[in-house]
Design a protein around this nucleic acid. Sequence first.
DNA 1: GGCACTCGAATTTAA
DNA 2: TTTAAATTCGAG
Length: 716
Amino acid sequence: SAAETRKHEAFQHQTPNPAAKISLTRHPPKWEPPRSSQQKPREGRVSEWKSAREPRGTASPSHETRLLSGARIELDASKQTQQNWQSKIEELSRESPGKASKNTPFCKPCKLKWATCETKHVTSGPKSFSEAVNTSEPLTHSRAGCLTASLTSDSRVKDAGKLNPDEKVQMFEMAVQAKVVVLTMVYQDGSTQLDPEQKLTPPVCGLLILMKNEPNCSMPEGSLGPNDTLVYLKLEHTPAWAQQQVYQRVLGGVCISQLVVCYKAKDLLRTVLQFYRRDLSWKQVAGCHIQDPQVSGWLLDPTDPSSCYQDLLNKHCKRPHLTPALGAQKVSLSVNLLIIYCIRSCESINNFIVSAMESHRIHVDKEALRRTSDLLGTKMKQLEQEAHRAAGQIFLLTSNTQLRTVLFEKLRLHERCENKKLPKTTGKQQQSTSEAALLQLQDLHPLPKIILEYRQLAVNDDFLSLCLVLTGKEEEVVTVHPRAMFIPQEGCTFLAADFCQVELRLLAHLSSDPELLRIFTNPQADVFTMLASQWKGMSENEVTSEDREHAKRIVYSVIYGAGRERLSGILGVSSEQASRFQDRFLQTYRDVQAFIQKTIQQSHKKGYVLSIMGRRRTLPNINSPDWGVRMQAERQAVNFVVQGRKTDSAQCICFSQLVAQLHDELLYEVEDSQVQQFAGKVHPVLGKNSYTAPHNFYQPLTIKIQFFSSKTSSFT
DNA sequence: GGCACTCGAATTTAA
DNA sequence: TTTAAATTCGAG
């Protein structure tokens, strides 16, 4: 489904620069992304990425392949999806040759089969989704027709398409008056959202809707109450009045007091948002109240969320359930959804935020992307050659297995650093090629440094600017701005809000440790530097980057409950030293230790822990007789209290189009006229144009701000 | 036997 | 040391 979501747009997440906390990217005037559907879609936007499609395992992949792997993967997936659908459709065509010969999917603009059409216009432009849908529409007719026949052979299922006007009116009234609406998407192959997930989700052809007026669970399984109605509604591109009503009913939040239940509601919302892109905006979806049994199941037991609907039933539904014929089975399944509703105990979180986010499209500055791509490609090629030279052999730089062989079997670097402890891999206890390991080795041989630099380009994308020294004929220093390559909608601005060191702030807030709190009184300072100076007892100027890194690692280790062995592996020091660091930290911040102990104690007593938003995590193993199992549960308890609320915070702030969420950073697209107002909502400090922190918090929600202008490529 | 695809294990990184 | 995601690579 992710591939489906992204198949029409080159869309890429960027990780934040730790220094840039809120940045605003103004819409560059020279770019005019096509907004109206009348405009011609931009052509060939992604075609030059074709070369990036390469089979895995190629010994010496082209550098385009290595670049910006996010985009490559998405396009790759898009092509795969098309080809697979193509073969699937052809398969279906063989089943009914008469009709299907006309249905071979053609790429409309160039009249070629999808599989042979190399031009990517199918995958670009605002109309792409509907085009894709329309292309397979004849198929929808034939298959859905047969499906409808099998559904409507059950007299209880009404086909909305075959109702006479009076019945339609009746149905509409039912939809409005129903106390509960339960629904599921029906796919072209006759499966529904309740069936186990398939490798490739087939196109949606309609909805099966149960309008229930007796929302009790005492009905015999599979039977409808006298006032209940079951309707099959075909998904059509032009919203008919009935559909409009239903979707309004379902999505518009018209009757908020009434309940809509849908298993995997996010997929439904996303499908509807994409299908009715022109008629519906995310804002209309924002108010809907959908209960999602999948989410409820996860909330009830986050450790072991049921993988499919059947799992969920087996786990939470005590009744034995029958397996009747197809039509009846659908009824039974829908009714079972109601059973789940009856035993529900948690309020569903806002699926719509995620579905709106997943349906959103971001335009990319194709030229800038290509330039950057070439630039990074050149640099990486150089590094690759350097690495091969340093190693004395050709190997794949991205393969840790191959790198391990070169570093430790060929060069035997580990034998030359007996005084240092090199990290081992968690599983097999092999020599690690992680960053920590390479840092230890970098003075012994040129190769580790080259790999580190290479990984910075290939793996780490958490930079906003980077200087490249191209050692070609001339040396050249270039600055790259990955964020400048993404274009907001016209009249809009990207606004990125990044919580600064949320975990540490939350730890300070929860433990009320005076020393830790003191660190946050100075909003300008770097917390980890201050932390290092505080617990190592040196002045801030004396703190080296190594000290700072140690401080950072220790914070996380303490939060997650690492032992000294693990910590020594992370820091690259002896376990005695690691143990001393840890003791020192806990002595400096005594209330932190007290908080951790209190949390563990309470989890033992109650069997669960709560996040600040009141979300509960049950810990079945917290009183296990097995020491290892119990300790793991204790670590999970502390971890959930501190970490489990980042997600909660993300759910709290949503007044505008949330475009992406990455860990503790939220990216919004905001209308220019509302930027200031919105920034004020995200960050009260910005709204007041003052840096005074709100005094009712220990700053756990402080967000630093930075404006980034893509015009001048600079920060303010 | 070659080739494409899928899956799971192992490794690495981020927060 | 937790959770989540991305990637390689061998096996089917």
